[in-house]
Nucleic acid binder design. Structure first.
Lengths: 125, 125
DNA sequence: CAACTATATTAGAACCTGCTCATATTACTA
DNA sequence: TAGTAATATGAGCAGGTTCTAATATAGTTG
């Protein structure tokens, strides 16, 4: 305590009012609201279990029943259901009910993203 | 750059050859190793702070100095540095040193993904 | 060299996520 | 209607993530 003998000079301000800013390039403002939706989508995909589910659904010809997915990803039925639910909220999968079964498929958005990811790093396998 | 030829022959992994399966459509196996890299990329982007950084870097004409980003995203210098570090590891941003400053820019991969995200939901809005 | 600036790294606390278990719901069947 | 199968939902915990503060490192300048 008792450290504030002489308050330092102006330090925490942004030194950019002079016309000759040293490093600072002006960055334009962005639409922060638009970010929220994107982050929701990306964070839904950015998880091992959910991404594997999406990939498996995408690899199937048609939509896939939950029971298949359970066997594939190796977590409990409840976990799969929750994961699919999150993907659905993020707009990445479609749901179709048929009898007691639910069939999941990819949305167009999800397919677009997977295509883009497949096209990345096309040089290193 | 064709699709990866998943030509895996029938591997004796799962006993599901009985024709009795009621709902189950066969889902092909997928390349689990390839998923890891994608998830790393997606989870790096799937965070408010990091995605905002990426968007701000992308919105600038040229590369951006860290000091600008700090002011923009409203977290501590340390936090910004850590976030940029993670984006760099994920292959989403480039680093350039110039004097005491570091300039960050987007990689081609990051630009591709942002373009894809911008193109999604092009009908509603 | 000493002081200062810009960025990186480390440590640790608060918060968030993703799983399992238990239970609820819905649809089919005898 | 009872019983059973398929999926969803809720509680709660283990482990992970993301901040902040403190400190280290590197470049720059007097």
């Amino acid at each position: 305590m008792g450290k504030n003998a002489t308050d330092t000079a102006s330090q925490s301000g942004r030194p950019d009012d002079s016309a000759e800013s040293a490093c600072c390039t002006p960055i334009p403002d962005i639409d922060e609201d638009a970010l929220v939706g994107d982050v929701q989508l990306l964070s839904a995909l950015g998880n091992d279990t959910r991404y594997e589910l999406v990939r498996r659904i995408g690899a199937a010809e048609d939509s896939v029943c939950v029971c298949d997915l359970e066997a594939a990803v190796g977590i409990s039925q409840s976990g799969v259901s929750q994961a699919l639910s999150r993907l659905y909220s993020a707009g990445l999968v479609t749901r179709r009910k048929e009898g007691s079964w639910r069939y999941y498929g990819l949305t167009d958005d999800a397919e677009q993203i997977l295509d883009t990811l497949d096209a990345l790093g096309g040089d290193h396998e």
